[in-house]
Amino acid sequence: MSRHVIDRAEEIPPGTRRVVDLDGRSIGVFNVEGTFYALRNRCPHHGAPLCEGPVSGTMLPSDPDEYRFSTAREHQIIRCPWHGYEFRLDDGRGLVKPETSRVKAYRVEVEAGDVVVYTR
């Protein structure tokens, strides 16, 4: 397990992100309303820099002709800047085909005011 201190937590305030290089891997660290997430910066579809895409809530499955948009924590997603594929921020699973489409999610903690990402 490799421990990486990214920065002081207040330097990555809510609504921002930091893309860093850890052990040769590009990884995005996100602060969404005070919760930190870390994902590999590579879309499993075509290799796009996933972590440069927008972070948002998601449109939930619904009955025909109804829309239900959720910004709940468990519905926070990152959307690939190339083809718009959506991945959950917490576990990296694709909203579509979650069994096969997944981006690596890393454990991220705030330890003594530091944002810490654990790789491998």
């Binding site: 499955p61 009955d63 718009g84 694709g94 909203l95 085909k97």
Partner: peptide, 15 residues
């Protein structure tokens, strides 16, 4: 396309 544009037609629940 569904993987990219799913949120326009969220009632499509399967491929």
């Amino acid at each position: 396309d569904w993987q990219s544009l799913r949120d326009e037609v969220p009632w499509i629940k399967r491929p």
